[in-house]
Write a protein that binds this DNA or RNA. Structure first.
Lengths: 203, 203, 203, 203
DNA sequence: TATGAATGAGGCTTCATTCAT
DNA sequence: AATGAATGAAGCCTCATTCAT
């Protein structure tokens, strides 16, 4: 790792991380380049040196998130190999939200909510992220089914989508209410539902 | 001679309805007073004559929504008196979303996702709306339980929150994916879960 | 003339006149909205209230010029009814340039020289202005020819274009050299050439 | 071992040529160092290594042009030794303009048009270029006069200036109209005028 | 009630230049 | 010789709001 490489890369990452945090906190629309520049302690020029536009930065923030998910480097672990892991997947998100005192929702949901017809690129980035997450969840259900642990009615993809949607809705409600209660009960209901596909008899 | 009053009221309503539509379409942050003024065919002065600020307008738009919900005048019916009604509650929201070709989410979720620390008033408005909706849904579950149609484990408020959260999450995912598929399967899973509290034997 | 009408129109005209002067002095590219705003003693908002963009303002400045030419209200008179008038047409332009101490060229030529592929609208505006001027000059030559004052070889449109082009070239060279000498000798040559089509014998 | 020198010189020339082309196409004001850097496939550092500023580059571009004119290495030949050569001088410029589909004017006129009080250095460069061209044209007229081929009234310098000005005006009008017609007729008129000083009888 | 003129802060982006490696 | 990171001023434009008629 050469010094030269680091010099630029550091600034770029600082911008990405500051932006990711601000986007999570208040959405991309409410976050101005100036605010990101200040938070990342850079100059205006650097912003546009590393990113071709604010939209380009959002894109790269999402790429970074996606990369972390794929590499298993994100705060929430998306590698689900047991029911315990699945519970932890839900739980980690609730805990993350709580750590922000329920003032934030899911970083992806927050950005996804803002997309309009003019943000097609961003929409696709988000769609891809959710696709990857869904696949990770679905893979677990597929494996469980193969093991005979799930009933015939259980559709792995449908269940994966249900996990994501209920988590998204729960976090959104948590943010609006500034309370973790609904989030927690909703997650419990979701888990209860998922367990209903579980074949106890076979054990 | 109410003419004068009526004319004014009309302008005010035109602004509210135009604003409601634009907020639903693109969020409040992305909607400028100018855009609302143009859509409602008014002048700038009228905007600030009827509403003290953009935030004030958002507030009144939400009051109008709340009023419609309470009066049972909204597109989605919140009066749930049967399992059929509950299914229709879910379905009406899916259909509404489809009518916009999956480019919009829930009008309340959309606004709720945007709130930050500076929008406390709006957050409370939304919180109230969801509280009212929750109460309407919970009332149904309470009644069903009283009738002995729900198992002991069923908690009316928890189930009501679950309905709202899963619907919110489903619509958000539908908007991001521009597809109704996930929305529909998630709604089905939610309904399946709710039905699991139903005591068939007692019938 | 109502007060209300005047209130806005005055500002709008002040902006147009300030802009016209700055464009003439340094070109449109080198003139920022801020500079125009300051020169016209207005606020930023007014600029974009009256004009949809800087390009839109350039367009309106040119429309104003065109209007003045058509109405015969411009500094240079384009109504040519005699050789004397034609001489005055050349002369007025030279004098105008001298009044700026040879630091400016023709306002239209200055803008025309700046146009690129992205300024098609402006290019067409300028093209139209020169077309109108050409028609006024050509009309004179046509009439002279009808009177038998011009030789058969004289083509009214060609001569009109020659007048404009030589005047444009002269003013551009005058601006570059900061000297009126070339302008004056070139105008003399042009006039000499034009007179060569004059049929003295017929008089 | 000139290799190193040559490599550097190459970069420098690449920058000059890219800049010359962009200045011709869109003027110097509309051309940013970044654009030149990209077109010449160099880095930012090289730009300011070889040229102290953008203005310095414009200066060197003009020096290069001047040098080419002096060395007879430019696209348009400025060595006029016969009426045929003079016709070709006009014609070469028309053809050059046509080769750009009438989207460009004269490279010197384009830059000259942009000069303001802050560009005194550039103005002088251009003034010098036109002086050199004028001298080359005037030298021809002087020789013709010495040969007795021109009438007494013919003033070599005046005629040279007339050539330049009419050519400049013609090219400017050609660019504005995106048509070669006016350019061609104007050049014809100019030549007709010049020939009128020619003493046929003496031949 | 209604219109739209006026204001200035701020949003996104480009520019010209300098600096460090 | 070469690269590109860093800087901050400025350019064009939109925003939310207030004021005058």
């Amino acid at each position: 790792m050469r010094r030269q490489f680091v010099r630029g890369a550091e600034t770029r990452l600082r911008i990405i991380h500051s932006a990711a945090d601000l986007f999570h906190k208040q959405g991309a629309r409410a976050t101005s380049p100036d605010e990101i520049i200040e938070a990342s302690r850079t100059g205006k020029g650097q912003f546009y040196h590393y990113f071709k536009s604010k939209e380009g930065l959002i894109h790269e923030v999402l790429q970074t998130h996606l990369d972390e998910i794929k590499r298993g480097a994100s705060r929430v672990s998306y590698e689900i190999n047991s029911w315990k892991d699945l519970e932890m997947w839900f739980d980690a998100q609730v805990e993350s939200q709580k750590s922000y005192e329920m003032t934030r929702g899911c970083p992806f949901g927050t950005l996804g909510n803002e997309v309009t017809d003019n943000d097609e690129l961003i929409r696709q980035d988000l769609s891809l992220i959710f696709e990857v997450v869904k696949n990770k969840l679905a893979a677990f259900f597929v494996r469980e089914k193969a093991k005979g642990n799930l009933t015939k009615q259980a559709d792995a993809e449908v269940l994966a989508d249900f996990c994501i949607a209920s988590m998204q809705g729960a976090m959104l409600m948590g943010k609006i209410k500034r309370s973790s209660q609904t989030v927690e009960t909703t997650v419990q209901e979701a888990l209860t539902h998922l367990r209903s596909y579980f074949v106890k008899a076979r054990r």
